Deep mutational scan, measured.
Amino acid sequence: VIAMPSVRKYAREKGVDIRLVQGTGKNGRVLKEDIDAFLAGGA
């Protein structure tokens, strides 16, 4: 999974398994917005 360390930390704090999140950034990078969208109700 491609993600910046700050995004990985954010996901950990929110209790999200970053491997389950679909990245929308360049080359499938997971963004902070992707974590929020995942929490809001889905992949």
Rank of each mutant, 00 (worst) to 15 (best):
G41F: 14
L20Q: 12
L39G: 04
E13K: 13
G25L: 03
Y10Q: 02
V1M: 08
D36G: 03
V30I: 14
G28V: 02
I35P: 00
G42S: 14
L20W: 10
E33W: 10
D36N: 07
G42F: 14
F38W: 12
V21Y: 01
D34Q: 01
R19Y: 09
E13D: 13
S6M: 08
Q22P: 12
R19E: 11
T24D: 02
D34F: 00
V7H: 02
V16H: 01
K26N: 10
A3I: 09
K14R: 13
G15L: 06
A3Q: 05
D17S: 06
E33P: 08
E13Q: 14
D36F: 04
N27V: 05
N27Q: 09
D34E: 00
G42I: 15
A37L: 11
Q22I: 14
A37W: 10
D36E: 07
V21W: 03
V1K: 08
K32P: 05
E33V: 13
A3N: 05
D36Q: 05
A3D: 05
G23N: 03
K9V: 08
L31G: 05
A11S: 05
A11Y: 02
G23M: 02
V16M: 03
L39I: 14
E33N: 10
G25W: 02
V7K: 01
R12D: 12
A40P: 05
V30E: 00
G41Y: 13
K14H: 12
P5A: 15
R8A: 08
K14C: 08
P5V: 11
A43M: 14
R12G: 08
I18F: 04
E33R: 15
K14E: 04
I2A: 08
F38S: 04
V16E: 00
L20D: 09
A43T: 14
D34K: 00
G25Y: 02
K14N: 11
D17G: 03
A37V: 10
D34N: 06
V1T: 10
G42V: 15
L20E: 10
A37I: 09
V16W: 01
I18S: 02
R19W: 09
V7D: 03
G42T: 13
G28F: 06
L31K: 08
V7I: 09
V1D: 07
E13Y: 11
S6V: 08
V30N: 00
V1L: 10
G28H: 07
R8Y: 14
L39E: 05
G25P: 01
V21K: 00
V7W: 03
G15C: 07
R29S: 11
K26W: 11
P5K: 15
D34R: 01
Q22F: 12
E13P: 01
G42N: 14
A11C: 06
R19V: 07
S6N: 11
V21H: 00
F38V: 07
G41C: 09
Y10P: 01
G28E: 04
R12S: 14
K32E: 06
A40Q: 13
R8H: 14
K9F: 08
V7S: 03
I35L: 04
R12L: 15
T24P: 01
I2N: 11
I2Y: 05
E33G: 13
K32Q: 08
K14P: 00
V16I: 10
V1S: 08
R12Q: 15
F38N: 03
R8T: 07
D34V: 00
G28L: 05
A40G: 10
V30Q: 02
I2T: 10
V30G: 00
K32H: 09
K9C: 08
K9T: 08
Y10E: 02
I2M: 06
A3E: 04
A3R: 05
M4G: 15
A11I: 01
Q22W: 10
E13L: 15
T24S: 13
D36R: 05
D36M: 06
E13R: 13
K32I: 12
N27I: 05
N27T: 05
F38Y: 15
E33S: 15
I2D: 09
L39H: 06
V16Y: 01
G41K: 11
G15A: 06
I35V: 11
N27E: 09
V30Y: 01
Q22M: 13
V30T: 05
A3Y: 04
V16G: 00
D34A: 00
A43S: 13
K14A: 08
G15N: 10
I18L: 10
P5S: 13
T24Y: 03
R8P: 03
K9H: 09
F38E: 04
G23V: 03
D17E: 07
V21D: 00
E33D: 11
K26H: 12
A37S: 11
N27D: 13
K32A: 07
A43W: 14
L39F: 07
D17K: 05
G15W: 05
A11H: 01
R8E: 10
D17Y: 05
M4K: 15
S6K: 11
G15Y: 06
E13G: 08
V1N: 08
G41S: 14
A43P: 13
L39S: 06
E13V: 10
K9A: 11
Q22G: 08
I35H: 00
R12A: 15
R19K: 11
G15S: 07
R8M: 14
V7Q: 02
G28T: 04
I2H: 08
N27W: 12
D34P: 00
K14Y: 07
K9R: 14
A40L: 14
D17M: 05
E33I: 13
A3T: 07
V16F: 02
R19T: 12
L31R: 10
A37G: 08
G41V: 13
L39M: 10
L39R: 07
A43V: 13
N27F: 12
S6W: 14
F38M: 07
A43D: 13
G23F: 03
G41H: 13
D17H: 05
F38A: 07
K32R: 13
G23H: 03
V21E: 00
A40H: 11
A43K: 14
S6L: 09
F38K: 04
E13I: 12
R19F: 09
A43Y: 14
L20K: 13
I35W: 00
